[in-house]
Simulated scan of single mutants.
Amino acid sequence: MRNLDVTTLRSFVAVAELGGVTRAAGFLNLTQSAVSMQLKRLEELLNLSLIDRSSRAVSLTASGEQLLSYARRMVSLNDEVMSRLTDQSLEGEITLGVPHDIVYPAVPKVLQMFNASFPRMKVQLLTSYTRELKDQYRRGEVDVILTTEIGIDPDGETLSTKPLQWVGAPDGSAWKQRPLRLAFGRHCIFRSGAIKSLEARGLAWEMAVETESDRTIEATVSADLAVAAMLEGTKPDHLEVIDHSGSLPELTQQKINLYAADKGKGEAVEALCDQLRQAFTMM
Score class of each variant (00 low, 15 high):
Ser76Pro: 04
Asn78Ile: 01
Arg277Met: 01
Ile256Arg: 07
Glu65Ile: 03
Asp155Trp: 03
Lys40Phe: 06
Thr161Asn: 00
Leu111His: 04
Ala219Leu: 14
Asp214Arg: 11
Tyr259Cys: 06
Glu65Tyr: 07
Phe12Asp: 03
Arg2Asp: 10
Ser11Glu: 12
Val209Pro: 06
Ala219Ile: 07
Leu125Arg: 00
Ser55Tyr: 01
Ala116Val: 10
Thr158Phe: 01
Gln112Phe: 10
Thr127His: 00
Glu80Ile: 13
Arg131Gln: 12
Thr8Val: 13
Ala208His: 13
Leu248Ser: 13
Asp135Thr: 14
Met1Phe: 05
Gln278Glu: 08
Val35His: 05
Leu18Phe: 10
Glu65Thr: 11
Ser49Trp: 04
Arg131Cys: 03
Arg191Leu: 11
Leu198Glu: 10
Thr61Met: 04
Leu9Pro: 04
Leu111Asp: 13
Thr161Asp: 01
Thr211Lys: 04
Gly97Asn: 09
Asn115Gln: 14
Leu67Val: 10
Lys235Gln: 15
Trp166Pro: 03
Val75Ser: 07
Glu141Tyr: 04
Arg53Leu: 12
Val81Gly: 01
Gly92Tyr: 00
Cys273Tyr: 08
Phe280Leu: 00
Thr220Lys: 15
Arg23Ala: 13
Leu180Asp: 11
Gln177Thr: 15
Thr22Leu: 08
Leu159Gln: 01
Val81Gln: 11
Gln177Glu: 15
Ile145Lys: 02
Ala271Gly: 14
Ala208Ile: 11
Thr7Ala: 12
Gln66Val: 13
Gly264Pro: 00
Tyr70Met: 14
Val110Tyr: 06
Asp243Tyr: 07
Asp5Met: 09
Met283Gly: 10
Ile102Pro: 04
Leu276Cys: 04
Asp262Arg: 03
Thr147Cys: 06
Thr147Ile: 09
Ser55Cys: 05
Lys265Pro: 00
Pro236His: 06
Ile152Cys: 08
Lys196Ile: 00
Asp52Trp: 08
Glu270Val: 03
Thr86His: 08
Leu203Thr: 14
Ser55Met: 08
Gln177His: 15
Thr148Trp: 02
Gly264Ile: 00
Leu272Cys: 04
Pro170Glu: 03
